[in-house]
Amino acid sequence: MLERVISFDPAAYSLETIQRAAYRYIDKFSIGFNVKEASIDCILQFDKEVDDLDGVIQDFRKEVLDQHLRARIAKETESIRHLILAHAFSRTGLV
């Protein structure tokens, strides 16, 4: 089984963000984590059908970045999202 280890800076990305990104690649590799103070090491074990390991890793890194951006948007818009939902359903008895 082909294995690669890639690292992320915990100051830049949370473990949850990396885990969310990893779900999208569940058909390409399994993943283990080694969380240290200075780095989050991801141990990727690739399925045997995967031949372009570098390409998949590159895409995975992009997805981590995307997940980070999604988390930022969700956090920043959380209060307005609740406000919109409360306003939308204010007369329904659902909220």
Partner: peptide, 17 residues
């Protein structure tokens, strides 16, 4: 914008009522 979005949200999920 927020009010319009709320209106559209209400319409989209009207079935939930």
């Amino acid at each position: 914008s927020a009010e319009l979005l709320a209106l559209k949200t209400r319409t989209r999920y009207q079935r939930l009522q």
